[in-house]
Amino acid sequence: MNFSLYKHMMKVNIKGVMNYAIGAAFYIVLVVWIYPGMEKTAKPLNDMLSAMPAGMTKAFNLQNGFGSFESFISGEFYGVLFTLIVSIFCVMVPIQLMAKLVDQGSMAYLLSTPTTRGKVAFTQASVFLTGLFLISAITTACGIIGVRIFINDANSFHVDRFIQLNLAAFALFVALGGISFLVSSLSNDEKKAMGISGMIIFGFYSLDIVGKISEKIDWLRDFTVFTLYKPADIVNGKGDVIQNCIILFAIGLIAFLVSILVFRKRDLPL
């Protein structure tokens, strides 16, 4: 870890991180805020959902319906919005931290100072993880505060499950970010890296959705990390949240480690 570099990179990236964090926090407060209005119409909405094919509702994590606030937020926010917003973060930021510096050549300056490539890669990974953590923490905090303000029946809200939900999401993004960081560490071309990372991450997302639609193609979900992230199960207290989180964190950790190793041994066109 190189603290001068860490400090500097945080300074450069904090604005971008805050944009994502504020965006996500704004959405969660919005979703919490509109829920009391939705609750009244929950019955017809649920009827509508049950009229839809089961695969469709499952694909978009809506199988819990709109009956309770938790099922609503797990489906609406953690199932779709938050996943998409932070997935974009997971594609873009590792590229900016690694591939872009190599592509533009400013990596030459970092490596011309007495620091090792391993340290540079480790520091950049730390910057990404710090950013991701800030986004998750701010979203979680805003969610909890939002519930206290807007939801009348706040007692039925399980804070522990809500935190688990956020932890699971964080674990998913660590895995996605790790994969994207690995692509970025291997690339000399910023645009190419973005294309590949984007394809992998949104490919995973699509496999998960398509796999859920029909039982017959359920095997598709064996090839995507999104399978390990089940917001609907978490709010119902079902499934092994901790085990899934550990697997996701392990995927992320391995990807970051491999990134550092390959970056140390690679020819750089600087």
Binding site: H8, V12, L101, Q104, G105, S106, A108, Y109, S112, L270
Partner: peptide, 11 residues
């Protein structure tokens, strides 16, 4: 000390 041929600073 190093001066690169194509100078690219951090933005």
């Amino acid at each position: 000390g190093y001066l690169p041929g194509e100078i690219a600073f951090i933005e």
